[in-house]
Design a protein around this nucleic acid. Sequence first.
DNA 1: CTCGGTATTGGACCGATGGACAGGGTGACA
DNA 2: TGTCACCCTGTCCATCGGTCCAATACCGAG
Lengths: 203, 203
Amino acid sequence: MAQLFVCQGRDEIPRWREAFTEARLIGPEQARAQAVAGDRVWVTSDLEHWSSLVTTLSQRGVILSVLSYAPNSREAFQALGAGARGYAHALSPPELLRQVETVVTHQGIWVWPELLAQVVGGAFRTLGGEAVLQEETLACLTERERAVARAVAEGLSNKAVAKQLEITERTVKAHLGAVFRKLGVRDRMQLILKLSHQEQDVL
Amino acid sequence: MAQLFVCQGRDEIPRWREAFTEARLIGPEQARAQAVAGDRVWVTSDLEHWSSLVTTLSQRGVILSVLSYAPNSREAFQALGAGARGYAHALSPPELLRQVETVVTHQGIWVWPELLAQVVGGAFRTLGGEAVLQEETLACLTERERAVARAVAEGLSNKAVAKQLEITERTVKAHLGAVFRKLGVRDRMQLILKLSHQEQDVL
DNA sequence: CTCGGTATTGGACCGATGGACAGGGTGACA
DNA sequence: TGTCACCCTGTCCATCGGTCCAATACCGAG
């Protein structure tokens, strides 16, 4: 049950040593040769062919976490698709790395908080999420709130929505606030992302 | 930080008591009224409107896990989409429930092992298709502008993008301004629609 | 008839956003 | 060496967006 950090060796590693004092640093080739089932292996996404390394080791039963210096949802999915259980920022503080380690060793998935919503949402849309999303997203909205949400989802500004619906911009804000609260989104961008993956006939 | 099991009250609960001796059993209405941020709440998927209950509580900061007597991938996606962090069999042994609890309290996601591959695998396929097409659209952009555009297209704010790319918020604005000019869009909303639209075209 | 939900609007506040000015630093190329 | 593109940063400012505090009116359920 070794704790291994895979790196090219050129950069000095930030705080991994602080998080896991007993961890060992090895290169990609050593990782392929030495890692066995049960080992916790950390891979940085700036490595060449990190994805195939993750795939290989995960099939062997190794518990993998990917660390990225520039986390994004696309890379997160690539990591999870390759079999990684964790995806975090490479410069995460030691206590967060230990948290990731706790999760992945207990059969869990740990994703960088800023991307968690997108990862979960993307996974949800993948399989039959449409029907459920319709109920969840639209049932709780009133007629007027739906109209505002539809306009905003087309990229219109509050002023444009107000002109289109022949109401005050202030009223648009009121309805929009209710939409945000009911749909659990923070702002209009989250709303666009949530609605843009649905069919138009729903609205 | 209460440990709460939501149930209709009629059935006797299998082994939850064994797993968490200090846990309390409450009904859905009590859960909506009492649960606060930080609480670990367990919901069974045989409840009426369990999905909306999960949505409501998760937005409140409650840590939710869904227990199903007949786990399936569709329900798993529904649970995760509603904001649940855990999805397991309702008859899971106590040690497994405690494992789920460990994972979700550490910001992790725990999914029934038999469904895990489908969750991450399926999600990766869809997102992979989107990523390829974005590259074509953003061909006229520089590397940095692409990174900013990608992040913004995921709904991040300027500040969040700045933190992710480890640059100043001002620099994000500069790149973003160039992106707007090159792609002929007025604001970030138009950018999101432009990018997400092309994803759907190819899909 | 009261109570609650919906629709509408107002004002004020403050953070986020985008544009317009201004630079400095690097590396490639003629 | 000069030029150019790219990357990074700064200040100022007008506007937009989102939330808080209200208020008025309609309408159906109890």
